[in-house]
Amino acid sequence: MYGGGNTFEGIKTDSLAQEDPQKLAAFEARIARGEKIEPTDWMPQLYRKQLIRMIEQHAHSEIIGALPEGTWITRAPGFKRKMALMAKVQDEVGHAQLLYSAAETLGKSREEMINDLISGRSKYSNVFNYPTFTWADCCFISWLVDAGAIVNQLANAKGSYGPYCRALDRICAEESFHLKYGHHCVIYLASGTPHQREMFQEALNRWWTPMMHFFGPSDKISAHTEILMRWKVKMGTNDEMRNQFLDMYVPKIWELGFTIPDPALKKDPATGKWAYTEPDWEEFKRVINGDGPCNKERLAVRRVAEERGRWVREALKSPKMNYVTPLA
């Protein structure tokens, strides 16, 4: 789901000086021609490192993202919603599985990645550090957070690393169902009782800032990532992605009669760009560095799951065990 809000720290390009200049030039030429880089191909260390970081963050976002929606599976109102939500969250866990495999082709094991997640060393999408108070929050995620993710993922699917692109193609196909499901849920709230409408309006008020944060800090203040754009690791600037999201979904939200809590939000018909109030980027930094409403809870849940499952994973390593492939 959530390719969004990847954090790229200021990229130090010093290591490039140690790369073979001819190989580097050939590598860049391949990318410029639109070729895909495969796991056994030559690649600069910096490319490998940044890709692992990005794909790993994406994978973590899928499993952590399964938690806020997952807690609504047991509470979903009615058979239809319950079954659809179960299938959706299951897909998200499946995405994590695909993405960990894609990252493993670059030389980091799933186990190492999960250890880095629960120790807090690697990040995941900031949006999941916010709580889902009501069913409507869960619907907001299914529709609009997934919508944001699709904007990012469709762009990233045109990137340069073969295994990541192929994983994203499969993921995007499933995401379009999530989006349809989420939109459907919100339509029912919009056309439901006054209480149901109010539930979604309140969720929208709560989630708008995290949603704006989702695409990462504004271009004015974010780290320079030109080299990642040239290498097709990053496929668009944060502001471009955010603008694309606003352009596609603000009209749909308005169409349902809801109010977006930003009076400055409007499209400039001449440039096609949306104007909006910059969300609080200090809050974004605080949350991504661990001090959000749910960071501790999310990681604690993950940690407990890992801890409780350890004996199973140990048993899987036993020579007497020959079950390896999932039966799903």
Partner: peptide, 9 residues
Amino acid sequence: TGMGPILEE
């Protein structure tokens, strides 16, 4: 969901 000992489970 989200709590299994391995993702496959």
